[in-house]
Simulated assay, not measured.
Amino acid sequence: MMRGPGAARLLERALTAAASRAGASIAIGAGRATDWQSATFAGQRHEITVEGETGPALDRWLETLAEADLPLAGHLVADIAVASLARNAARTAFVIEALTVEES
């Protein structure tokens, strides 16, 4: 039985906090997580729609997202990337794809 929030919710919180530290304000939209397993690991694949205010702070955060340290209790972010991005002068909408694995 799982206690506390799952990996999807923890990832959303970590993304919001990391963006905030970078000076970018984001809003998490719809998210989807599917179970994933390899021969040695178990986890989830995540697809999260996000929106933020267009500007240099958001751009810098998105450029460094793949290398970001996103701590999740009981999980590791094994892979993360911006899968798609659309912007106008005021708002930037994007989709983040990530793989989280359970810590042993």
Rank of each mutant, 00 (worst) to 15 (best):
G43C: 12
A86F: 07
V82N: 13
L70K: 13
D69E: 02
R13P: 06
I28M: 12
V95G: 03
G23F: 01
E53P: 10
R32Q: 09
R91L: 03
D59P: 01
V77E: 06
P56T: 15
R91K: 15
S25F: 15
N88Y: 04
D69W: 14
R21E: 14
G74V: 08
H75I: 05
A33C: 07
A27T: 11
T49Q: 13
A19K: 02
A17V: 03
R21Y: 10
G52H: 00
L62A: 02
N88V: 03
S25L: 14
D79W: 09
A27R: 15
I28S: 07
G23D: 12
V77K: 12
L99M: 07
A42H: 11
A81V: 09
H46N: 04
G23Q: 02
A89D: 12
A57H: 01
A89W: 00
A86R: 02
E102P: 14
V82H: 10
R91F: 02
I26W: 02
W61D: 03
A86W: 02
L76V: 08
E63C: 05
A42E: 14
A93P: 07
A24T: 01
A98P: 05
A81H: 07
Q44K: 14
G29P: 14
T64I: 07
D79Y: 15
S38H: 00
Q44P: 04
I48A: 09
G55A: 08
T54Q: 09
L99V: 04
V101P: 11
R45D: 04
R32L: 14
T54C: 01
V101K: 10
T49Y: 12
G29I: 01
P71K: 00
G43M: 00
D35E: 12
A93C: 06
E47D: 12
E53S: 08
R13F: 07
A73W: 03
R32T: 11
G74A: 06
T64V: 15
L58F: 05
A18Q: 09
L85E: 01
T16L: 09
Q44H: 15
A22R: 10
E97N: 13
I48Y: 01
I80L: 01
A90G: 14
L99G: 06
L58V: 09
D59S: 06
I80Y: 01
R87N: 11
S84V: 04
L76C: 04
A73Y: 02
R21P: 03
R13M: 08
R13E: 14
I80W: 10
D79S: 04
W36H: 11
D59M: 05
E97V: 14
A98Y: 06
A18S: 12
